[in-house]
């Protein structure tokens, strides 16, 4: 009853588009992350010249649908000769470039707010303790603020990563041949909607499962302080250091 041959053939065709989906995902996620650092830095600044533009950016990119953003960047910008003659056209000419740009700009807005939430939730006392010891602002940022924020935002960011992977499917609407694009192409030719989309959904499901596991492993590695209290075995006071490997464990 179930046409396994067709399903297998479809899966293979869809998997051939997997590199496109994955490169879309990784490049837009990483570019978006870098951009979000800049935006959140501006957002939390005390200078209104920096924080207001950042707030506008965040509001625009969180407040409009991603598909509209993508269409605006791909078709909208392409209508202006001034854009076509600029150096940006090298990237904006190709649908893949536009998709990456659009996805990155969108995730930057959300990620900036996620990071800001993490920053606000750092116990202020820990920052004061760093200041009281004489840490410079840079050292404070590197050693206290960044690590604590990272641990606070991981759960929220893993959600963002999952949403981004699913958002790459929208690139098919601007003629990028990712998994969803190929799926639609197959359906156009065979009219077997149910089977083809089920295969595509399965592929996205597997990818998202991998992301979830990876994030959870990362969370586990980074939060020994949230785990169970270790069993206490008193050790004799050591007067010579360097012989106990545990105390020389490196930290993140």
């Amino acid at each position: 009853m179930i046409d396994f041959a067709f399903l297998l053939d479809t899966l293979l065709k869809l998997l051939s588009a997997l590199p496109t989906t994955l490169t879309l995902f990784f490049s837009s996620l990483s570019l978006g992350l870098l951009l979000s650092f800049a935006i959140v830095g501006m957002r939390v600044s005390r200078c209104p010249l920096l924080s207001y533009p950042a707030r506008c950016y965040i509001m625009i990119f969180r407040g409009t649908p991603l598909i509209i953003q993508m269409y605006l960047i791909y078709y909208g910008l392409g209508q202006f000769p001034v854009v076509r003659d600029s150096f940006a056209w090298v990237v904006l000419r190709s649908p893949y470039g536009c998709a990456v740009v659009s996805l990155a700009l969108c995730t930057a807005g959300y990620t900036a707010e996620i990071i800001r939430g993490g920053l606000l939730s750092i116990p202020y006392g820990q920052i004061e303790a760093g200041q009281a010891i004489g840490m410079s602002r840079l050292a404070l940022l590197r050693r206290i603020i960044a690590p604590v924020t990272l641990r606070q935002v991981l759960p929220a960011y893993s959600t963002e990563a999952i949403l981004m992977l699913k958002a790459t499917a929208l690139a098919s609407l601007i003629t990028v041949w990712d998994v969803t694009g190929i799926a639609q192409q197959i359906i156009q030719r065979t009219y077997r909607t149910m089977e083809v989309f089920a295969c595509a959904a399965f592929i996205y499901l597997v990818l998202n499962y991998i992301i979830v596991r990876a994030m959870r492993w990362l969370e586990h590695r980074l939060t020994p302080h949230l785990r169970e209290r270790p069993v206490h075995t008193p050790t004799k006071a050591k007067l010579d250091a360097g012989s106990n490997p545990k105390s020389l464990r490196s930290s993140l």
Partner: peptide, 9 residues
């Protein structure tokens, strides 16, 4: 409130 850094041992 002690203010130890929670992510460090």
């Amino acid at each position: 409130s002690f203010n130890l850094w929670s992510h460090r041992s």
